[in-house]
């Protein structure tokens, strides 16, 4: 959002490293929803050999394979663009591996503890039980016009929050951050994290609008036919989880 309140730049970080689970779809959804509100929006896709711009409005980090996770962390730390953008008040939406690397520390594929970027009070370690794979439903702890959040989780490590980092939702079905805990995702200031793939914003348009509001201060005004489809998808997914 630059000056006139009419543009929204969505920065998609390293889709070549953190784009394995369809999370790049979140960028498209944010762009289109901004356009529905009459804004001009651009997706700036930044590959791992490119510099991260600091003037974006929303920064997206997706899920990825274990190997590239350390590499992405190294590049992000060296580049510094993401941290500068956060200092300037940008919104960050990080999913799964992206969630893990922006915390204080995480465990890599070899089992070694790795320092994260320290943007969140969150520590990620291997979960004692098997990998969490399946539908994940939670009740959001923030006011966002949706009673439940729905996604698909697929992670072998769990994340513990502390300090001023709050969870995004309370788990209704699935595992979420920790198999011994009851929460899903994380929120600290304008940083929002989740374990939900799907991608998360496809099933949860209200979460997309929550991020857009956080970035622009404007509420969605117009109803768009795609909202109906997304509500249908969300209720179909929720009904399926309730039945099983």
């Amino acid at each position: 959002m630059t000056g006139s309140n009419l543009t929204l730049d969505v920065v998609l970080i390293y889709p070549d490293l953190l784009g394995t689970y369809g999370d790049s779809g979140n960028a498209l959804i944010l762009k289109k929803r901004a356009e529905f509100q009459g804004m001009k929006s651009t997706i700036i896709s930044v590959d791992s050999d490119e510099k991260i711009p600091t003037g974006g409005d929303i920064y997206l980090l997706g899920g990825g394979e274990d190997g590239p996770q350390n590499y992405a962390r190294d590049l992000l730390a060296r580049d510094g663009g993401l941290m500068s953008a956060v200092d300037q008040g940008a919104v960050v939406f990080a999913v799964c591996a992206g969630f893990q690397i922006i915390g204080e520390s995480y465990v890599d594929s070899k089992g070694d503890i790795q320092p994260g970027l320290g943007l969140l009070d969150a520590k990620t370690s291997r979960m004692p039980k098997k990998r969490a794979v399946g539908e994940l439903v939670s009740k959001p702890l923030f006011d966002m016009g949706q009673q439940y959040l729905s996604g698909f989780e697929n992670h072998g490590s769990g994340t513990e929050l502390y300090g001023d980092t709050q969870p995004l939702g309370r788990v209704v079905a699935g595992v979420g951050n920790l198999d011994s805990g009851e929460y899903e995702g994380a929120v600290r200031g304008k940083i929002v994290c989740t374990y939900m793939h799907g991608p998360a914003l496809a099933r949860n348009p209200s979460l997309a609008d929550f991020l857009l509001y956080s970035a622009t201060g404007t509420h969605p005004l117009l109803h768009h036919s795609v909202d109906d489809l997304q509500r249908l998808l969300l209720s179909e997914r929720l009904a399926k989880v309730v039945r099983s």
């Binding site: 689970y21 999370d23 790049s24 779809g25 498209l28 698909f152 991608p199």
Partner: peptide, 9 residues
């Protein structure tokens, strides 16, 4: 595969 996220790719 029970995760359909890939259709966004």
């Amino acid at each position: 595969g029970t995760d359909t996220s890939w259709i966004w790719d």
